[in-house]
């Protein structure tokens, strides 16, 4: 890349994204005005509790939000400068698996049980690279080797593999066409701890060779620290704080982020109980007025219950959505 060091071209830019699920019980507002940016070659960790809208965000980038009931109601998603939300099926099919790939949370169920793994990898290669079936099989075998599975297992079926190996196969499928953006949605959550480390190492080592930018979705701050350049903390469908990894870990600002760090165990201190953030994440069918975190926030001000805070810059590349840091904002 020829850009200036430090600030390269954005590969993924999400602006003001809104996604909702229209169910019989009401409208579930999963993503509410999310802003995100990943630069070429960078890895961004998207952190948040279950239900914060992380997976929906990822699916929106693939335009795979299940519809109905899901609808992308507003916003902009640009991949390498190209707006994708207006694109039709055919154009999205060209992007998926090719320019943008995704690794899913549950490797046990993510592979088709009736096809052998070799053909499942070869399928994506044939689709996007226009090679002969034979050549696709050869390249698929190469991908298997790259993820540490012997080539001679290409003819085996998913049920003949362990969970960790299935996730390796998923990684092989996702990286087979060298995507510019790899989305990994909790890639290790369903795996044993020992296998988790192997899969993380694998993604890290393959990233250099196979993929441009990376969006890692997780609730594991340790994983983010190990794998990412930047972090975005998500709460109730919005990014409430983002910064590069060193900045965020040394200098977290948003009360929610502080709460997340506060709930991590400290190996140097012996504590009776881990601290947790009081309350529950809000029901996305009935989001509170104002800042969605205010019912749980210890530093709540009057304005927090009235109006939603916008982004305030608190450091180099470090932004927070909180009235505490807003110049125009509230008073104590």
């Amino acid at each position: 890349m020829s850009e200036l060091p430090g600030r390269t071209q954005p590969l993924l830019e999400i602006e003001n994204l809104h996604v909702e699920y229209r169910t019989l019980d009401g409208i579930v507002k999963a993503v509410n005005g999310l802003n995100l940016r990943i630069d070429e070659g960078k890895a961004l960790g998207l952190v948040g509790e279950t239900g914060a809208g992380k997976t929906t965000t990822a699916l929106a980038v693939m335009k795979l939000v299940p519809t109905p009931p899901g609808v992308i109601t507003a916003g902009s998603v640009r991949i390498a400068g190209r707006e994708i939300l207006p694109l039709g099926d055919a154009e999205m099919q060209h992007l998926r698996g090719n320019q943008v790939s995704m690794i899913f949370q549950n490797p046990m169920a993510s592979l088709n049980p009736v096809h052998d793994v070799g053909s499942q990898i070869a399928e994506v290669i044939r689709l996007h690279q226009g090679v002969s079936p034979r050549e696709a099989r050869v390249r698929a075998a190469g991908m298997l080797r790259a993820v540490g599975i012997p080539e001679n297992r290409a003819g085996d079926f998913p049920h003949e593999f362990s969970g960790g190996m299935k996730q390796r196969v998923m990684i092989a499928i996702a990286l087979a066409c060298r995507p510019r953006l790899l989305i990994a949605d909790e890639p290790t959550t369903a795996l044993d701890v020992t296998i988790q480390a192997q899969v993380i190492d694998l993604i890290k080592s393959l990233k250099r060779d196979y993929s441009g930018a990376q969006l890692l979705i997780t609730h594991d701050l340790g994983l983010v620290a190990e794998m990412c350049d930047d972090v975005a903390v998500m709460y109730a469908g919005r990014v409430v704080e983002k910064a590069d990894i060193a900045e965020l870990f040394q200098n977290p600002r948003h009360p929610y982020t502080l709460g997340l760090f506060g709930s991590l165990p400290n190996l140097k201190k012996s504590v009776h109980r881990l601290r947790s953030i009081g309350g529950l994440s809000p029901d996305p069918k009935m989001l509170p007025r104002g800042c969605p975190f205010h019912p749980r926030c210890a530093e709540r001000m009057d304005v927090c219950t009235e109006r939603t805070p916008s982004e305030s810059v608190v450091g180099a590349g470090h932004t927070v959505c909180c009235w505490k840091y807003s110049e125009s904002g509230g008073t104590r």
């Binding site: 693939m62 099919q93 998926r96 698996g97 993510s110 088709n112 399928e123």
Partner: peptide
Amino acid sequence: DYVRTARAKGL
């Protein structure tokens, strides 16, 4: 999930 995987491949 595997149907979603297939969609994510671009099929």
